[in-house]
Design a protein around this nucleic acid. Sequence first.
DNA 1: CCAATATTTCAGAAAATACTGAAACAGGCG
DNA 2: CGCCTGTTTCAGTATTTTCTGAAATATTGG
Lengths: 192, 192
Amino acid sequence: MNLPPLIQAFVLHFGEMGSRWGINRTVGQIYALLYVSSEPLNAEEIVERLGVSRSNVSMGLKELQAWNLVRLQHRPGDRRDYFGTPDDIWQIVRTLVDERKKREVDPTMTMLREVLMQEPASPEERHAQARLREMHDLFELLTGWYADVQRLETERLVQLLTLGSKVQKILDMKDRLFVVPGSKGRRGGKDT
Amino acid sequence: MNLPPLIQAFVLHFGEMGSRWGINRTVGQIYALLYVSSEPLNAEEIVERLGVSRSNVSMGLKELQAWNLVRLQHRPGDRRDYFGTPDDIWQIVRTLVDERKKREVDPTMTMLREVLMQEPASPEERHAQARLREMHDLFELLTGWYADVQRLETERLVQLLTLGSKVQKILDMKDRLFVVPGSKGRRGGKDT
DNA sequence: CCAATATTTCAGAAAATACTGAAACAGGCG
DNA sequence: CGCCTGTTTCAGTATTTTCTGAAATATTGG
């Protein structure tokens, strides 16, 4: 591996973390390297810097392309592919979450729905279904929230995240303002 | 594997998903099984139902205990350990996120801070640091939000998630009500 | 303390995953 | 076309991870 120490530390750590999240080490390292590079890199440059085989880099890049995480560029008079990451880190996060949802959450929801359709053949299965229903509803809530939030412009999203649970206080305030005192507070209904 | 079809489908899927998230298949299967079981199970029962070795189950359970994801119980006149999951699925999610944060996010933040302290020895390193700063700030924002939200009671959290980006509309409304018209809208400052 | 039962540890086997070099493939250009 | 440059594929190898059975280590009741 042939990198300035600071960059190497990051690349190694990121590769390590990747493998804890089911992403192969080399893929993690390639992405870390692209992320910190000021210029897009071609495959050969990645090989030199990481010290892995050409074919390994090729497969890693293919994987990253399948995840929509890299931008491919070309230089005039050079027919090699140059790879970079989106400039906006939020874009990276959004893509990452989208793809993971598509690959893991959506199939899980499908499986849960199928299993919930079946007629339970025993009290044991009945109980299991109740549990799976809870999981299904939780996933639905989370993915619904995510779909909603994903549509926000980044600036607004950052505002929301910065507020954190303080939003709660504002909601309370809204309730106090608009709900008849003494009636049960209601939230989540149709607003506009 | 010796399970009712409905439960087996779930257990297999969950084991598969686990391995995509860096959790070993057997551990995923054990947890899925405990999750849908109405009664806590002892190690031997897990062995029978999943058809894996006793020692594998022992290691899996140890792992799950290290993650704080299982509840250990005892039956009177029986000195075997019985394992179950928390009844509240939200509790499971909270624990899961907490532990992953502790194991993966926190060390990453430490690494990022260390690397950001170093003096860049080249323009290349300077650029890398700027990128790492972006990542650091993003992680800080997300973990700050999470810490905030983690403190909410589940009921309130569900309210918030149900609202999704509609919160945004309420914030706008608040701005219109409380900010002098014509001035620049401000958000995220100290409220209350 | 001993016997009986339950659990954990651990070295080696098995399986899964990642990595490599060589060969095949692609496409642009004279 | 035929060559050059660059990319991908793939079978075999290496590495890592998971799993097992046997032995070691608790723990409890008598």
